[in-house]
Design a protein around this nucleic acid. Structure first.
Lengths: 157, 157
DNA sequence: GCAGATCTACTCGGATAGGTGGTGTCCGAGTGCCTTGGG
DNA sequence: CCCAAGGCACTCGGACACCACCTATCCGAGTAGATCTGC
Protein backbone atom coordinates (compact mmCIF):
# COMPACT_ATOMS: atom_id res chain seq x y z
CA UNK A 1 0.00 0.00 0.00
CA UNK A 2 1.65 3.20 -1.10
CA UNK A 3 0.34 6.49 -2.44
CA UNK A 4 2.33 8.60 -4.89
CA UNK A 5 3.94 11.65 -3.42
CA UNK A 6 2.08 13.78 -5.96
CA UNK A 7 -1.10 12.84 -4.14
CA UNK A 8 -0.16 15.20 -1.34
CA UNK A 9 0.57 17.93 -3.87
CA UNK A 10 -2.80 17.83 -5.53
CA UNK A 11 -4.60 17.57 -2.21
CA UNK A 12 -2.95 20.76 -1.02
CA UNK A 13 -3.59 22.42 -4.39
CA UNK A 14 -7.26 21.51 -4.24
CA UNK A 15 -7.46 22.78 -0.65
CA UNK A 16 -5.82 26.04 -1.71
CA UNK A 17 -8.28 26.50 -4.55
CA UNK A 18 -11.10 25.87 -2.10
CA UNK A 19 -9.90 28.85 -0.05
CA UNK A 20 -10.26 31.26 -2.96
CA UNK A 21 -13.38 32.85 -4.47
CA UNK A 22 -15.01 30.23 -6.66
CA UNK A 23 -14.37 32.00 -9.97
CA UNK A 24 -10.66 32.67 -9.41
CA UNK A 25 -8.18 30.73 -11.48
CA UNK A 26 -4.60 29.93 -10.51
CA UNK A 27 -1.89 28.79 -12.89
CA UNK A 28 0.37 25.79 -12.47
CA UNK A 29 3.40 28.00 -11.97
CA UNK A 30 1.80 29.86 -9.08
CA UNK A 31 0.77 26.67 -7.32
CA UNK A 32 4.20 25.13 -7.89
CA UNK A 33 5.99 28.13 -6.38
CA UNK A 34 3.49 28.32 -3.56
CA UNK A 35 4.28 24.78 -2.47
CA UNK A 36 7.86 24.45 -3.71
CA UNK A 37 7.29 21.54 -6.08
CA UNK A 38 8.36 21.06 -9.72
CA UNK A 39 5.88 22.83 -11.96
CA UNK A 40 5.75 20.60 -15.06
CA UNK A 41 5.01 17.43 -13.19
CA UNK A 42 2.43 19.17 -11.06
CA UNK A 43 0.73 20.25 -14.28
CA UNK A 44 0.52 16.64 -15.32
CA UNK A 45 -1.23 15.66 -12.12
CA UNK A 46 -3.63 18.59 -12.27
CA UNK A 47 -4.53 17.48 -15.78
CA UNK A 48 -5.57 14.15 -14.28
CA UNK A 49 -7.91 16.01 -11.96
CA UNK A 50 -9.39 17.84 -14.91
CA UNK A 51 -10.00 14.56 -16.73
CA UNK A 52 -11.69 13.24 -13.61
CA UNK A 53 -14.00 16.25 -13.51
CA UNK A 54 -12.72 17.63 -10.20
CA UNK A 55 -11.03 20.73 -11.57
CA UNK A 56 -11.75 22.94 -14.58
CA UNK A 57 -8.97 24.46 -16.67
CA UNK A 58 -8.91 27.69 -18.65
CA UNK A 59 -6.24 28.62 -21.19
CA UNK A 60 -4.84 31.98 -22.18
CA UNK A 61 -3.76 34.90 -20.00
CA UNK A 62 -5.40 34.90 -16.57
CA UNK A 63 -6.24 31.27 -17.24
CA UNK A 64 -5.50 28.38 -14.91
CA UNK A 65 -7.36 25.95 -12.68
CA UNK A 66 -10.42 26.30 -10.52
CA UNK A 67 -12.75 23.86 -8.77
CA UNK A 68 -15.28 22.28 -11.11
CA UNK A 69 -17.91 22.13 -8.33
CA UNK A 70 -18.53 23.92 -5.03
CA UNK A 71 -16.04 22.77 -2.40
CA UNK A 72 -18.85 21.18 -0.41
CA UNK A 73 -19.45 18.70 -3.22
CA UNK A 74 -15.82 17.65 -3.70
CA UNK A 75 -14.61 14.96 -1.34
CA UNK A 76 -11.06 14.01 -0.51
CA UNK A 77 -11.80 10.65 -2.09
CA UNK A 78 -12.58 12.35 -5.40
CA UNK A 79 -9.13 13.95 -5.41
CA UNK A 80 -7.25 10.85 -4.30
CA UNK A 81 -8.92 8.54 -6.80
CA UNK A 82 -8.44 11.05 -9.58
CA UNK A 83 -4.68 11.02 -9.12
CA UNK A 84 -4.35 7.36 -8.22
CA UNK A 85 -6.79 5.74 -10.61
CA UNK A 86 -9.30 4.36 -8.15
CA UNK A 87 -8.43 0.71 -8.72
CA UNK A 88 -8.69 -1.72 -5.83
CA UNK A 89 -5.18 -2.17 -4.40
CA UNK A 90 -5.78 -5.89 -3.91
CA UNK A 91 -6.29 -7.74 -7.16
CA UNK A 92 -7.70 -11.25 -6.71
CA UNK A 93 -6.20 -13.46 -9.41
CA UNK A 94 -8.17 -16.50 -8.29
CA UNK A 95 -5.09 -18.15 -6.91
CA UNK A 96 -7.28 -20.89 -5.45
CA UNK A 97 -7.96 -22.12 -8.99
CA UNK A 98 -4.31 -22.32 -10.02
CA UNK A 99 -1.40 -24.65 -9.41
CA UNK A 100 -1.44 -28.17 -8.07
CA UNK A 101 -4.01 -27.40 -5.38
CA UNK A 102 -6.50 -25.84 -7.79
CA UNK A 103 -10.05 -26.03 -6.56
CA UNK A 104 -12.69 -27.12 -9.08
CA UNK A 105 -14.80 -24.28 -10.39
CA UNK A 106 -17.88 -25.79 -8.77
CA UNK A 107 -16.47 -24.89 -5.33
CA UNK A 108 -15.68 -21.32 -6.36
CA UNK A 109 -19.16 -19.96 -6.88
CA UNK A 110 -18.68 -17.62 -3.94
CA UNK A 111 -15.98 -14.96 -4.11
CA UNK A 112 -12.69 -15.72 -2.40
CA UNK A 113 -13.00 -15.00 1.33
CA UNK A 114 -9.66 -13.22 1.34
CA UNK A 115 -10.66 -11.00 -1.57
CA UNK A 116 -13.93 -10.17 0.16
CA UNK A 117 -12.08 -9.17 3.31
CA UNK A 118 -9.67 -6.97 1.43
CA UNK A 119 -12.52 -5.45 -0.54
CA UNK A 120 -14.43 -4.62 2.63
CA UNK A 121 -11.37 -2.90 4.07
CA UNK A 122 -10.92 -0.88 0.90
CA UNK A 123 -14.57 0.14 1.02
CA UNK A 124 -14.10 1.29 4.62
CA UNK A 125 -11.11 3.37 3.51
CA UNK A 126 -13.08 4.93 0.68
CA UNK A 127 -16.05 5.67 2.90
CA UNK A 128 -13.79 7.40 5.40
CA UNK A 129 -12.34 9.63 2.71
CA UNK A 130 -15.70 10.26 1.06
CA UNK A 131 -17.03 11.63 4.36
CA UNK A 132 -14.71 14.65 4.25
CA UNK A 133 -15.18 17.44 1.71
CA UNK A 134 -12.75 20.17 0.78
CA UNK A 135 -15.02 22.62 2.56
CA UNK A 136 -14.60 20.58 5.74
CA UNK A 137 -10.84 20.77 5.35
CA UNK A 138 -10.90 24.53 4.92
CA UNK A 139 -13.22 24.85 7.89
CA UNK A 140 -10.68 23.31 10.26
CA UNK A 141 -7.93 25.76 9.33
CA UNK A 142 -7.20 28.77 11.53
CA UNK A 143 -8.49 31.97 9.93
CA UNK A 144 -5.03 33.30 9.12
CA UNK A 145 -4.25 30.54 6.66
CA UNK A 146 -6.98 31.20 4.06
CA UNK A 147 -6.33 34.90 4.38
CA UNK A 148 -2.68 34.51 3.47
CA UNK A 149 -3.52 32.04 0.74
CA UNK A 150 -5.89 34.53 -0.84
CA UNK A 151 -3.29 37.27 -0.62
CA UNK A 152 -0.44 35.20 -2.08
CA UNK A 153 -2.42 33.59 -4.87
CA UNK A 154 -4.13 36.80 -5.96
CA UNK A 155 -3.33 37.32 -9.62
CA UNK A 156 -0.92 40.18 -10.40
CA UNK A 157 -2.92 42.75 -12.34
CA UNK B 1 -2.58 2.79 -3.51
CA UNK B 2 -1.31 -0.54 -4.72
CA UNK B 3 -0.48 -3.79 -2.99
CA UNK B 4 2.24 -6.13 -4.29
CA UNK B 5 0.99 -9.24 -5.99
CA UNK B 6 2.96 -11.30 -3.51
CA UNK B 7 0.54 -10.11 -0.86
CA UNK B 8 -2.08 -12.42 -2.28
CA UNK B 9 0.42 -15.26 -2.31
CA UNK B 10 1.29 -15.02 1.34
CA UNK B 11 -2.34 -14.55 2.34
CA UNK B 12 -3.25 -17.79 0.61
CA UNK B 13 -0.22 -19.51 2.07
CA UNK B 14 -1.13 -18.41 5.56
CA UNK B 15 -4.71 -19.53 5.02
CA UNK B 16 -3.46 -22.91 3.82
CA UNK B 17 -1.27 -23.32 6.90
CA UNK B 18 -4.25 -22.45 9.04
CA UNK B 19 -6.09 -25.43 7.56
CA UNK B 20 -3.45 -27.91 8.69
CA UNK B 21 -2.75 -29.36 12.14
CA UNK B 22 -0.86 -26.72 14.08
CA UNK B 23 2.42 -28.64 14.30
CA UNK B 24 2.69 -29.51 10.59
CA UNK B 25 5.36 -27.77 8.56
CA UNK B 26 5.23 -27.15 4.82
CA UNK B 27 8.20 -26.26 2.66
CA UNK B 28 8.41 -23.38 0.22
CA UNK B 29 8.51 -25.75 -2.74
CA UNK B 30 5.26 -27.42 -1.74
CA UNK B 31 3.44 -24.12 -1.29
CA UNK B 32 4.82 -22.79 -4.58
CA UNK B 33 3.63 -25.84 -6.50
CA UNK B 34 0.32 -25.79 -4.69
CA UNK B 35 -0.42 -22.28 -5.89
CA UNK B 36 1.59 -22.20 -9.12
CA UNK B 37 3.91 -19.36 -8.17
CA UNK B 38 7.73 -19.06 -8.41
CA UNK B 39 9.27 -20.75 -5.40
CA UNK B 40 12.37 -18.61 -4.69
CA UNK B 41 10.51 -15.33 -4.53
CA UNK B 42 7.78 -16.85 -2.42
CA UNK B 43 10.49 -17.94 0.01
CA UNK B 44 11.63 -14.35 0.27
CA UNK B 45 8.15 -13.17 1.21
CA UNK B 46 7.64 -15.96 3.71
CA UNK B 47 10.91 -14.90 5.32
CA UNK B 48 9.36 -11.48 5.85
CA UNK B 49 6.49 -13.13 7.68
CA UNK B 50 8.95 -14.96 9.89
CA UNK B 51 10.74 -11.72 10.73
CA UNK B 52 7.38 -10.19 11.61
CA UNK B 53 6.64 -13.07 13.97
CA UNK B 54 3.63 -14.41 12.05
CA UNK B 55 5.21 -17.64 10.86
CA UNK B 56 7.88 -19.88 12.34
CA UNK B 57 10.47 -21.63 10.20
CA UNK B 58 12.29 -24.90 10.75
CA UNK B 59 15.33 -26.04 8.79
CA UNK B 60 16.49 -29.48 7.82
CA UNK B 61 14.48 -32.42 6.44
CA UNK B 62 10.76 -32.22 7.26
CA UNK B 63 11.38 -28.58 8.01
CA UNK B 64 9.39 -25.67 6.62
CA UNK B 65 6.90 -23.09 7.80
CA UNK B 66 4.08 -23.19 10.32
CA UNK B 67 1.95 -20.58 12.07
CA UNK B 68 3.73 -18.93 14.97
CA UNK B 69 0.45 -18.55 16.90
CA UNK B 70 -3.00 -20.19 16.84
CA UNK B 71 -4.95 -19.09 13.76
CA UNK B 72 -7.44 -17.29 15.96
CA UNK B 73 -4.73 -14.88 17.07
CA UNK B 74 -3.40 -14.06 13.59
CA UNK B 75 -5.30 -11.34 11.76
CA UNK B 76 -5.27 -10.57 8.07
CA UNK B 77 -3.74 -7.23 8.99
CA UNK B 78 -0.77 -9.01 10.57
CA UNK B 79 -0.05 -10.79 7.30
CA UNK B 80 -0.58 -7.77 5.06
CA UNK B 81 1.59 -5.47 7.14
CA UNK B 82 4.29 -8.10 7.43
CA UNK B 83 4.68 -8.26 3.67
CA UNK B 84 4.03 -4.60 2.97
CA UNK B 85 5.92 -2.97 5.80
CA UNK B 86 3.04 -1.36 7.65
CA UNK B 87 3.96 2.20 6.77
CA UNK B 88 1.21 4.75 6.28
CA UNK B 89 0.61 5.06 2.53
CA UNK B 90 0.21 8.82 2.87
CA UNK B 91 3.38 10.54 4.01
CA UNK B 92 2.82 14.11 5.17
CA UNK B 93 5.90 16.12 4.26
CA UNK B 94 4.56 19.29 5.83
CA UNK B 95 4.00 20.86 2.45
CA UNK B 96 2.26 23.75 4.14
CA UNK B 97 5.61 24.84 5.58
CA UNK B 98 7.46 24.79 2.25
CA UNK B 99 7.62 27.02 -0.80
CA UNK B 100 6.54 30.59 -1.18
CA UNK B 101 3.29 30.08 0.75
CA UNK B 102 4.98 28.53 3.76
CA UNK B 103 3.00 28.96 6.94
CA UNK B 104 4.93 30.04 10.04
CA UNK B 105 5.59 27.24 12.49
CA UNK B 106 3.39 28.97 15.06
CA UNK B 107 0.31 28.17 12.96
CA UNK B 108 1.29 24.53 12.51
CA UNK B 109 0.94 23.30 16.06
CA UNK B 110 -1.95 21.10 15.02
CA UNK B 111 -1.36 18.30 12.52
CA UNK B 112 -2.25 19.02 8.91
CA UNK B 113 -5.98 18.49 8.38
CA UNK B 114 -5.33 16.54 5.19
CA UNK B 115 -2.86 14.26 6.90
CA UNK B 116 -5.31 13.66 9.72
CA UNK B 117 -8.02 12.72 7.24
CA UNK B 118 -5.77 10.32 5.40
CA UNK B 119 -4.59 8.86 8.66
CA UNK B 120 -8.15 8.28 9.84
CA UNK B 121 -8.95 6.47 6.60
CA UNK B 122 -5.87 4.30 6.96
CA UNK B 123 -6.86 3.47 10.52
CA UNK B 124 -10.32 2.46 9.30
CA UNK B 125 -8.67 0.19 6.73
CA UNK B 126 -6.44 -1.37 9.36
CA UNK B 127 -9.31 -1.87 11.77
CA UNK B 128 -11.32 -3.62 9.07
CA UNK B 129 -8.49 -6.03 8.38
CA UNK B 130 -7.67 -6.53 12.06
CA UNK B 131 -11.24 -7.69 12.67
CA UNK B 132 -10.76 -10.85 10.58
CA UNK B 133 -8.53 -13.69 11.74
CA UNK B 134 -7.19 -16.58 9.73
CA UNK B 135 -9.54 -18.84 11.66
CA UNK B 136 -12.45 -16.72 10.43
CA UNK B 137 -11.24 -17.14 6.84
CA UNK B 138 -10.99 -20.91 7.19
CA UNK B 139 -14.41 -21.00 8.79
CA UNK B 140 -16.08 -19.53 5.72
CA UNK B 141 -14.67 -22.15 3.36
CA UNK B 142 -16.78 -25.14 2.30
CA UNK B 143 -15.63 -28.29 4.08
CA UNK B 144 -14.13 -29.86 0.96
CA UNK B 145 -11.44 -27.24 0.65
CA UNK B 146 -9.56 -27.81 3.91
CA UNK B 147 -9.88 -31.54 3.38
CA UNK B 148 -8.16 -31.41 0.02
CA UNK B 149 -5.58 -28.96 1.34
CA UNK B 150 -4.68 -31.36 4.11
CA UNK B 151 -4.43 -34.26 1.65
CA UNK B 152 -2.27 -32.39 -0.87
CA UNK B 153 0.08 -30.76 1.60
CA UNK B 154 0.62 -33.91 3.68
CA UNK B 155 4.35 -34.57 3.75
CA UNK B 156 5.56 -37.61 1.75
CA UNK B 157 6.91 -40.04 4.32
C1' DG C 1 20.48 -55.33 19.68
C1' DC C 2 21.86 -50.66 20.89
C1' DA C 3 24.41 -46.24 21.18
C1' DG C 4 27.21 -42.92 19.08
C1' DA C 5 29.37 -40.47 15.45
C1' DT C 6 29.25 -39.41 10.70
C1' DC C 7 27.26 -38.38 6.50
C1' DT C 8 23.82 -36.91 3.53
C1' DA C 9 20.17 -34.39 1.79
C1' DC C 10 16.93 -31.07 2.53
C1' DT C 11 15.68 -26.65 4.48
C1' DC C 12 15.86 -21.46 5.01
C1' DG C 13 18.35 -16.76 4.44
C1' DG C 14 20.73 -13.09 2.02
C1' DA C 15 22.97 -11.17 -2.07
C1' DT C 16 22.37 -10.50 -7.12
C1' DA C 17 20.01 -9.03 -12.15
C1' DG C 18 15.72 -7.45 -14.94
C1' DG C 19 10.98 -5.14 -15.89
C1' DT C 20 7.25 -1.89 -14.80
C1' DG C 21 5.30 2.35 -12.95
C1' DG C 22 6.07 6.75 -10.63
C1' DT C 23 9.13 11.08 -11.15
C1' DG C 24 10.98 14.85 -13.61
C1' DT C 25 11.43 17.52 -17.99
C1' DC C 26 10.63 19.37 -22.43
C1' DC C 27 8.14 21.44 -26.40
C1' DG C 28 3.90 22.29 -29.28
C1' DA C 29 -1.31 23.70 -29.91
C1' DG C 30 -4.79 26.80 -28.42
C1' DT C 31 -6.88 30.98 -26.51
C1' DG C 32 -7.98 35.37 -24.21
C1' DC C 33 -5.98 39.99 -23.58
C1' DC C 34 -3.71 44.08 -25.15
C1' DT C 35 -2.36 47.13 -28.65
C1' DT C 36 -3.02 49.77 -32.59
C1' DG C 37 -4.96 51.56 -36.56
C1' DG C 38 -9.03 53.35 -38.79
C1' DG C 39 -13.69 55.38 -38.92
C1' DC D 1 -13.99 59.00 -28.99
C1' DC D 2 -15.44 54.09 -30.32
C1' DC D 3 -14.70 49.80 -32.71
C1' DA D 4 -12.43 46.04 -34.87
C1' DA D 5 -8.59 43.42 -36.36
C1' DG D 6 -4.03 41.82 -35.59
C1' DG D 7 -0.27 40.43 -32.70
C1' DC D 8 1.34 38.45 -28.63
C1' DA D 9 2.15 36.47 -24.37
C1' DC D 10 0.45 33.22 -21.42
C1' DT D 11 -1.98 28.97 -20.59
C1' DC D 12 -2.75 23.82 -20.74
C1' DG D 13 -1.96 19.09 -22.96
C1' DG D 14 0.76 15.27 -24.56
C1' DA D 15 5.30 12.96 -25.76
C1' DC D 16 10.07 11.82 -24.05
C1' DA D 17 14.16 10.23 -20.48
C1' DC D 18 15.41 8.76 -15.54
C1' DC D 19 15.06 6.25 -11.16
C1' DA D 20 13.19 3.35 -7.50
C1' DC D 21 10.55 -0.59 -6.18
C1' DC D 22 8.61 -5.07 -7.17
C1' DT D 23 9.62 -9.41 -9.57
C1' DA D 24 12.44 -13.25 -10.41
C1' DT D 25 16.65 -16.06 -9.53
C1' DC D 26 20.85 -17.97 -7.73
C1' DC D 27 24.01 -19.90 -4.31
C1' DG D 28 25.77 -20.54 0.52
C1' DA D 29 25.12 -21.63 5.81
C1' DG D 30 22.83 -24.57 8.91
C1' DT D 31 20.38 -28.53 10.72
C1' DA D 32 17.36 -32.70 11.44
C1' DG D 33 17.17 -37.21 10.07
C1' DA D 34 19.05 -41.52 8.32
C1' DT D 35 22.89 -44.48 7.99
C1' DC D 36 26.74 -47.06 9.29
C1' DT D 37 30.00 -48.89 12.51
C1' DG D 38 31.63 -50.60 16.80
C1' DC D 39 30.54 -52.63 21.22
Amino acid sequence: VKLPESCEWVLHCAAALAQLPAADTVSTGQLAEHFGVPAPYLAKQLAHLVRAGVLAASTGPRGGFRLARPAERITVLDVVEAVDGGTDPYQCRELRQQGRGAAPAAECTEPCALAATMRAAHDAWRASLAAVSLADIVGTLPAEIPERTRRLLARPR
